[in-house]
Amino acid sequence: MAEAFLKVQDLARRYPGGKRGDAVFTVFEQVNFSIRKGEFVCMIGHSGCGKTTILNVLAGLDRASDGVCIMDGREIAGPSLDRGVIFQNHSLLPWHSALKNVTFAVAARHRDWNRRQVLEHSQKYLERVGLRGSEARRPAQLSGGMRQRVGIARAFAIEPKLLLMDEPFGALDALTRGNIQEELIRIWSKTHQTVFMITHDVDEAILLADRILLMTNGPEARIAESVVVDLPRPRDRTQIIHLPAYYAIRNHLIEFLVRRSKDFLRHPPAGFDPRNPPTVQPGLETAVFTAPGPSSPRAHRSAP
């Protein structure tokens, strides 16, 4: 089995109690997971379980109260160009054109490149997300979907070792979201980026992810399960819905989010250890309790 590329160990976020001796407020704790190189992992959970905090800690923009994140053998201690981030609200610089938003990132990544190299590389990625011809437009002159595409181009263009996405399509309408998900699949299948993505959208997670981490409700949230999405790639929205495994996974996720996430921790399944959440493959029915460390019951398909 491949060695974990990203390892998150005993991550916790706590807020100290107030002056009147209030109890410490714990958003999440005992969060452990790992991601292999080239793996696409989604995290799903209700608002308030600390997903965004986890992502920001991985990005190096925030600090956890406890625990460590190790990427490629080194502890994450701050922001780095090795980790690209696609934020929920596109976060493009509004005074730059679409192209300049990408060259901004590429020039920061490759300080030794000349203008032409930066420009060519940036244009290549803008074309990949279908924005040829819109390079000169500023974010305000682009639709929500196009802005998020620029964000995707910017993140992929720096070719980070790990790509972090915080509900990147949350603000888009359903049709645009569908198109841009396909865009994302296309560009991802070319690059095999390692991705960690937060989403609220169950179908999106199944379409994109190799594995889905389920968070229990906060406060004191934990990872409840790691659900393997063993659908063949390349995936197509219109085709995977005909696979029986699709519904097994979907029902499992929905049942978790609607019913089990609330009091999962009050009545945990036998043998549940939050530090080593079980890997589940819906459709095969039995929860597979694994030894510590990342694992999926089958060989990873998309690894090169």
Binding site: A59, G60, L61, G78, P79, S80, L81, R83, G84, V85, F87, N89, S91, L93, F104, A105, A108, R109, I158
Partner: peptide
């Protein structure tokens, strides 16, 4: 904050962040 975060994730120095963002 988002713009500052963009500068931080792209490893801009303090001076670069001040001038370019």
């Amino acid at each position: 904050r988002d713009y500052i975060n963009v500068a931080r994730t792209h490893e801009l120095s303090r001076v670069e962040t001040a001038l370019r963002v």
